[in-house]
Structure formats: structure tokens, C-alpha cells
């Protein structure tokens, strides 16, 4: 495991984004240096390895960006993509001339599916994955709210299994068009 885990809220002094705000909502932060803006733009081009339709920024795992450091957080404790994502960021930063920019990992506050951006929701739907209901923290884990079929739009759907092909997805089926689909889990 990475030796660079930071245990506190994770934003060092001078960081430009609040840890409680998804980066996606912070694209217009005033007072950012051009370098920070460039790094942000770069990160927005890096796909999530398991759901390449959305970027790591859409997914809400980039917690803060400053001119010498990028802070990320894993979705799940055992997310197998964590190291791959870190390497992807490293490669992108290096190629763009940001060799001096460090990558740090923080666990706190814990990632929630509420941090997936609105744009991320749309990209998930277009990719065939029903986005998670908002309000993960207070929502019932039973995911009682019905998922809308991302293919035909029907609400006549049913859960097949709460655990799917990756930790963040559940398996559903649409009773209207008879297609199975993934639903991003509330977390």
C-alpha cells in the first residue's frame, strides 16, 4: 500500500478546494493559478479504469489540487484500481511537465457517491449504468428507490444482486425491455 496516506482531512494549507466540495463544483474557483487550472484540466481527461466513460474528476475521487500536490481518495477500502489510478495521474503529470507535483492519498472524509458530478451522472447513464440516488449518507442502504433503466427509461426494474462486477455497482434488470444493467451503488 502507498506510504503516502494522509490521515487528516487532507487539504494542506494553501489548498484551493474544500474537502467537502466535489471538485466538479469548483471548476470556477477564483484565484487559482494557471498551473492549478492546467492540472485540473489534465485530471479531467483521465478515465476511471473500471468505468472509462467517466473521468476521475467526475467520480469525485480528486479531492484537492494545488500547484505542487494532487490529493485523491479511494472509493472503497479495497478498491483494486487505486494504484492504477495513481500511476495514471503520475504519467499524465509527468508527460505534461508537472514532475514536481506530488500525489497524496487521504481516507478522510470518506468518499461518497454523492461526490459524483452531475456530468458524471449523465455520462454513466449514457454508458448504460444507472447513476446512484443522491443523498447516500442518509439514504437507506436497501436502495429501495427504483432504478431507472438506462436503456429504455422504464421505472419497472428490479434488483438481481446488490453486489455486481465491481464493488461500486449492483446488478439490476429491466422488466420492460428485459435487459440487465448495472446500477452505481449508493455509498
Amino acid at each position: 500500500m502507498s506510504a503516502r496516506i494522509s490521515w487528516t482531512a487532507g487539504v494542506p494549507a494553501g489548498a484551493s478546494a474544500s474537502t467537502s466540495t466535489p471538485l466538479g463544483d469548483c471548476n470556477t474557483c477564483a484565484g487559482e493559478t494557471p498551473a492549478v487550472q492546467d492540472i485540473r484540466a489534465l485530471l479531467a481527461t483521465i478515465p476511471d479504469p473500471e468505468i472509462p466513460a467517466i473521468s476521475i474528476v467526475d467520480l469525485g475521487i480528486v479531492r484537492a489540487v494545488r500547484d505542487d500536490c494532487v490529493i485523491i481518495t479511494p472509493t472503497y477500502s479495497g478498491c483494486p484500481a487505486t494504484h492504477f489510478i495513481e500511476q495514471s495521474i503520475r504519467n499524465a503529470l509527468d508527460e505534461a511537465g508537472f514532475r514536481h507535483v506530488r500525489i497524496e492519498t487521504t481516507l478522510s472524509p470518506p468518499w461518497t457517491s454523492d461526490w459524483i458530478s452531475d456530468e458524471g451522472h449523465e455520462k454513466l447513464r449514457a454508458y448504460g449504468i444507472a447513476p446512484p440516488p443522491r443523498g447516500a449518507v442518509s439514504a437507506s442502504l436497501r436502495n429501495d428507490t427504483h432504478a431507472q433503466c438506462p436503456r429504455c427509461g422504464s421505472m419497472n426494474t428490479a434488483e438481481i444482486s446488490r453486489f455486481g462486477s465491481t464493488p461500486c455497482k449492483a446488478l439490476w434488470r429491466c422488466n420492460a425491455c428485459a435487459e440487465p444493467f448495472d446500477r452505481f451503488k449508493c455509498h
Binding site: 500500500m1 496516506i5 479511494p74 472503497y76 477500502s77 479495497g78 478498491c79 483494486p80 481516507l107 438481481i160 444482486s161 446488490r162 453486489f163 455486481g164 462486477s165 464493488p167 446488478l171
Partner: peptide, 28 residues
Amino acid sequence: EVDLSLANLALDLIGQATHFLGVAGDSD
């Protein structure tokens, strides 16, 4: 479905173990 479920639980638990053992020393 059960296979995937149990594998997912295992993954979560091994991830948690990595973090807790990382507090105690070198988790591997």
C-alpha cells in the same frame, strides 16, 4: 451472484486489513 457478492466482501475486508495493518507497520 453469490460468488460476486462474497468476492466483493473479501475485497472490502482485505482493503480494510491493509489500512489497519498499515497503522501497525508494513502491512505486507
